[in-house]
Design a protein around this nucleic acid. Sequence first.
DNA 1: CCACTATGAGACAGGTTGACTCACAATGCC
DNA 2: GGCATTGTGAGTCAACCTGTCTCATAGTGG
Lengths: 197, 197
Amino acid sequence: MPEERADPRQVRSREAMVTAATALLTEGGLEAVTHQAVAARAGVGRATVYRHWADLLGLRLAALEAGMPPLSPAPEDVRAASGAEPRAELVHYLRQLCERLDDAQAGAVLAAVLGGAQYDDGMQRLRLTVLTQIVDSLRPAVTAAVARGRLRADVTAETFAMTTVGPLVYQRFLAGARLGRDMVDAVVDAALRAWAP
Amino acid sequence: MPEERADPRQVRSREAMVTAATALLTEGGLEAVTHQAVAARAGVGRATVYRHWADLLGLRLAALEAGMPPLSPAPEDVRAASGAEPRAELVHYLRQLCERLDDAQAGAVLAAVLGGAQYDDGMQRLRLTVLTQIVDSLRPAVTAAVARGRLRADVTAETFAMTTVGPLVYQRFLAGARLGRDMVDAVVDAALRAWAP
DNA sequence: CCACTATGAGACAGGTTGACTCACAATGCC
DNA sequence: GGCATTGTGAGTCAACCTGTCTCATAGTGG
């Protein structure tokens, strides 16, 4: 990344603005993120917000991106044991995803992505980023599970993500439920049964 | 329904406005639905739109409700055969749901519900309506499948909806895929395997 | 110490929002 | 058919929001 020598004033106000933007997103959804609201919330001049993001979409995307940091990888021991018992690693990532979904901030990002992806190009890209992030984090464990004979040979990370993440998203955004640990366990086990060889 | 004696002028303009509102929703998402836009599209005075829906939320909810008519029941023969073979009825409803998801109009409604339900009370109610509609349409077939020994005794319509509708929603709104008939078949079969006794 | 540059404040035109009025024409009733 | 009722379209208006610009100020790097 071209981390150009940045003026501390720039990074300071940028940080304040991004923080304000994600807070607004969390509290009121995408529509609540406007130049004016961000300026007020960040204690920054309105012109400054326009200087950093000339258009509304860019501003909103910045809020969304900041609100969805990458999932952290499974701890070393879980990953090491994955060859023998892939379930633990799968559960690890999906639990993390669930905490994200239950968390207001990342939940707001996901909701915005689900709800707005089709009307906008930048949102499309963001949707793809989120999707790739989720699928790729599951991929090693899925591959291991296939190798270990726990899943059919033709099951891909994409398929597995569909049968696990799908139900979780459904529960959270359509059924309006909170996602406990047992929910993750149930979903993973159901998926393992569904795609057992 | 209290179908009060309505002035034909009222119903005429109301109809035009609702049609315009759903069209706008379909094309540009919830944000595109405003009093002004609806008035222009419906060929109606701006004041008229305000007269019918004093606040923006009400207007948008009207657009959403009109864009999501109830699922039609399975044909007689499929329902009759459901005791013996429940799979066909399940597939029937989920196929219909898929067509809806692929359809721009109902897809827009679902997307709006997924994306905006948490920030608003009226949207919460709409989410519940949509959810209930889906789950209830599956319920008879799920009950039949349980009775027939195709599903575990403890599988409810809610659970089954989660494991089928979830993946479909995932494919459509997160993976950005179109939903073919084979996708429905695969999802239903996976769910039947996952919850087989 | 000085040139540079990001910032905050404010001015400004253009558009949108809601609330209001008023003439008009479609409607329902007699 | 005539008439009171009522929904409507057009228009006005103040308040607000948006996007752009200017300018004095102060933090920054050399």
